[in-house]
Design a protein around this nucleic acid. Structure first.
Length: 492
RNA sequence: GCCUCCAUAGUCAAGCGGUUCAAGACGUCGCCCUCUCACGGCGAAGACCAGGGUUCGAUUCCCUGUGGAGGUGCCA
């Protein structure tokens, strides 16, 4: 049987990294099996609609390279692929369940339910709907329907026995039916709840493998009850762990405590789009995300999407939540940046550098060569090169460096000595600078570091720079180098 | 509170009863390279949540506790 998987996000306006990973795994499993990857938009919650949010989903998937075979934008034989456009499909199925006794109309007001919920909470109990409306006779139901009393349809969960399902990752999961609530299947607005829409959509779309977040693990037994009620074959379930992050929180005692929580855009955690706009490479993000919760069980950890399409399996999926580690993300990104060709690097870096370095007198190509090995993500470039545009204020204690045998005094001496040598260089190239200065250092009877360290400080104003004194002086140009040198000497 | 799930170093993780008193990667630390940083090279520290079982033998199986996550919505 052909494998059909689906990614079914709600349009929230951005792509959570956790969602991206779910999409990735879902996509990979379809590709691995030569099956179909379907995109379905779950927008049954009208109150949370976000304009343009669906486009964000299309766009993110496209950028990530996760092409879907069926979906709202590309069509397919099982459309429509947007739940709000399928809204008329659900009610007949719900009615079928009402007929067979697996569901029933409920006319209870929200007020009544809220009261009952509050009361249950007060007693420390889990709220369960009391099947109040199940007692209504067929005629009574019809009467209320005819009278236009607002209604919902609820699942009629057995009060005894067990419900369960099989999960690829977790194995058999079983619960007592007595702990299950009669969930709403069709809401008062006529739209299905997620619980119901999912079952109907997955079945009618021929989905064979349901891969989704762990948050559905405890409601999955109820979904299976629905499959049974319809006499349908349930899909293969694969519940994926959430992507977490570390944070601190102030507890009730007013203490700051470490916590782990789900990644959340609202709390400032980056979305896929955020990472991209900070200059993270798509391939690096994908590579890191795929390993966050899945192990290829080998030593290799660099994979392209097409390699993953062959390699991915369900056995390597982990059972416990994983914490998103920005440091490893950065490392992966830096690795991918290092593997870029100089041309590719330049293309990525140029906009950031242009922003930080006004004017066109800069040898950006050379600068890129210096920067490539030092870049973790492109957004950090402006700060790294800012000193080229404007000489920073600095404390003269920077000249002191024990290892380089440099002190404030020796620095002054060194700078005064090298000043005329530099001024005499007309061919302002790195090679000429290097050869002339190195020769001069030898003639002074100094150590390289003793002169080069203060020289670099004098023209850059900072302890760390991308490149050494020669590279910095070359980039600044003759005039600016001498100007900075004079300024720094004057400051001593 | 109740229900479900999970539990190997700071993090991601390998392991699937016995050449493992436990791989690899990130991070951390040290050394080398070196005019700084970065890259690169070499090396180090660092873990099987606890207590009971089962077994000749348990990180691996079972139970209990503890900790964590998720659910408990006319959200998904």
């Amino acid at each position: 049987m052909e494998v059909r998987t689906r990614f079914a996000p709600s349009p929230t306006g951005y792509m959570h990294l956790g969602n991206l990973r779910t999409a990735l795994y879902t996509y990979l499993w379809a590709r691995k099996n030569g099956g179909k990857f379907i995109l379905r938009i779950e927008d049954t919650d009208q109150e949370r609609e976000v304009a343009g949010a669906v486009d964000v989903i299309y766009n993110s998937l496209k950028i990530a390279g996760l092409s879907h075979d069926e979906g709202p934008d590309v069509g397919g034989p099982y459309g429509p692929y947007v739940q709000s456009e399928r809204k008329d499909m659900y009610l007949p199925y719900a009615k079928q369940l009402v007929e067979s006794g697996h569901a029933y109309y409920c006319f209870c007001t929200k007020e009544r339910l809220e009261e009952a919920r509050a009361e249950a909470e007060k007693k420390g109990e889990t709220f369960k709907y009391d099947k109040h409306c199940l007692r209504l006779s067929k005629e009574e139901v019809q009467e209320k329907l005819d009278a236009g009393v607002p209604w919902v349809i609820r699942q009629n969960v057995p009060t005894t026995g067990k419900a369960g399902f099989d999960d690829v990752i977790y194995g058999r999961v079983e619960v007592d039916c007595s702990t299950l609530d009669d969930n709403v299947l069709i809401k008062a607005d006529g739209l299905p709840t997620y619980n119901f829409a999912n079952v109907i959509d997955d079945h009618t779309m021929g989905i064979t493998h349901v891969m989704r977040g762990n948050e559905y693990l405890s409601s999955a037994p109820k979904y299976n009850l629905l499959y049974e009620a319809f006499g349908w074959q349930p899909p293969v379930y694969v519940h994926l762990t959430p992507v977490m992050c570390r944070d601190t929180e102030v507890n009730e005692q007013g203490e700051t405590v470490e916590i782990t929580r789900k990644m959340s855009k609202r709390k400032g955690d980056p979305s896929f789009e955020d990472l991209l706009s900070q200059g993270y490479l798509v391939e690096a993000v994908i590579n890191y995300m795929v390993l966050l919760g899945w192990s290829p069980r080998g030593e290799e950890e660099f994979f392209t999407l097409s390699e993953l399409e062959k390699l991915f399996d369900l056995e390597g999926l982990s059972k416990s939540p994983s914490i998103f580690d920005m440091q490893k993300m950065n490392w992966f990104n830096a690795e991918y940046i290092r593997r870029l060709t100089p041309q590719e690097y330049y293309a990525h870096a140029e906009p950031w550098l242009k922003k930080a370095l006004p004017g066109d007198g800069w040898d950006l190509k050379r600068l890129c060569e210096l920067l490539q090995l030092r870049t973790e993500y492109f957004a950090q470039l402006p700060e790294m090169v800012g000193f080229l545009a404007k000489m920073p204020e600095f404390d003269i204690s920077l000249y002191a460096n024990k290892k380089q045998k440099s002190s404030v005094e020796s620095a002054k001496d060194a700078l005064l000595k090298i000043r005329p040598v530099l001024e005499g260089i007309s061919d302002w190239t790195e090679t000429a600078l290097h050869d002339t200065v190195i020769e001069a250092i030898a003639s002074f009877g100094m150590k390289n570091g003793q002169l080069l360290w203060p020289l670099r400080i004098a023209v850059s104003g900072q302890a760390n720079t991308p490149g050494g004194a020669f590279e910095i002086m070359y980039l600044l140009g003759r005039e600016e180098t001498l100007r900075r040198l004079d300024g720094s000497i004057a400051g001593l």
